[in-house]
Design a protein around this nucleic acid. Structure first.
Lengths: 194, 194
DNA sequence: GTCTATACTTTGATAGAC
DNA sequence: GTCTATCAAAGTATAGAC
């Protein structure tokens, strides 16, 4: 109750993320967000200059998160173990607090918010992440396999939703598959870790 | 059958798919579709009872396509070769004529059109497809690996878009990775960190 | 059966009062 | 910092022309 000082903006972001993740960006109206907060639509426009500006601020958080992982990766030797650690760090980021909701939302709505500059930047960072786990000398199929690792983490919720398993079991399986994918081709089993 | 006047509905579907795929479902207005066809918005409401009804009719096509593959798979012995052939048939369906645009659109906009019953049915059919390539006795990670095969086909365009390759090269790599994923576990690889 | 004219409702957005 | 009032454009709906 104390201090609705500067946190109205944060509340808007929280409610928006919740509703966006639940029903999609376009299906969520500003009236809905405002009503949930007990304010008027116009009040939102004091804190954000547009609806897209709200979603852009959400994307910004994802970008910072991915940026940290890339910065770490850039400073490492380009070894297999670095690649595997990149997967682990991405996995950690997307399972931590709201990271999952954010990344899932971002992936789900990537056409809806196509023109947002922040979204483009995030996509660009994802590509950088993909490049970090890719050996450009490897065969195309092997490069694709490594990059698909990130999608395996993201897609696991949908791909396994008919199975009666816990979130933890799913997370564990997703990480195992992702690490497997990034670890090289099936032909060359001699790619030892480390 | 396709007389001069029965095909307005088809023209609407074609223009809608084109615009939806290009700029997304929500970003495409009925006015835009109508103008492109030289009719009024209201005319669309004679052929379709709502905007969602248009997209539902598009989803219906995808559903029929996937349904055919499932029907074939259900009639086969549940062998490894059947699973591999399921991947090939799905790959063929999504690279044939408009199949690619349809499936890509569907994947890109799956939150935007979440409440469309047809979309739910398509998602349900995808799950059925996933089950057909899954050995329920296998370890969870291996089940996920097999199911991720479909995502590898779908995600290859995004995952490799920084590489200077032809569509054919990408398709070939995607198919190779998908067949690899569906072909079983990689128990021989050590998944523990360094 | 096929479409237009018209109007209704809700959306994202702006201006100005308190 | 939030409100009221208002806007243009969107999706929707129906009456009626041909």
């Amino acid at each position: 109750m104390s201090g609705q000082r500067g946190d109205t903006r944060e509340k808007i972001r929280a409610v928006a993320l919740e509703l966006f993740a639940e029903q999609g960006y376009e299906k969520t109206s500003l009236r809905e967000i405002a009503e949930r907060l007990g304010v008027t639509k116009a009040a939102l426009y004091y804190h954000f200059k547009s609806k897209e500006d709200i979603v852009a601020s959400l994307y910004h958080d994802v970008q910072l998160e991915v940026e940290k992982i890339i910065a770490w990766g850039d400073a490492q030797p380009r070894t297999m173990e670095t690649r595997r650690e990149l997967i682990r760090r991405y996995y950690a980021a997307m399972t931590r607090d709201q990271g999952s909701a954010l990344i899932r939302f971002m992936q789900d709505n990537h056409t809806a918010v196509q023109e947002v500059k922040a979204a483009d930047q995030v996509r660009e960072r994802f590509l950088r992440l993909a490049q970090l786990v890719t050996d450009p000398e490897a065969e195309l199929a092997d490069q694709l396999r490594a990059r698909i690792a990130f999608f395996a983490l993201n897609a696991s919720a949908f791909a396994l939703r008919d199975l009666d398993i816990t979130d933890e079991q799913r997370h564990e399986a997703a990480l195992a598959v992702a690490l497997d994918l990034v670890s090289g081709s099936r032909a060359d089993v001699d790619l030892a870790p480390g």
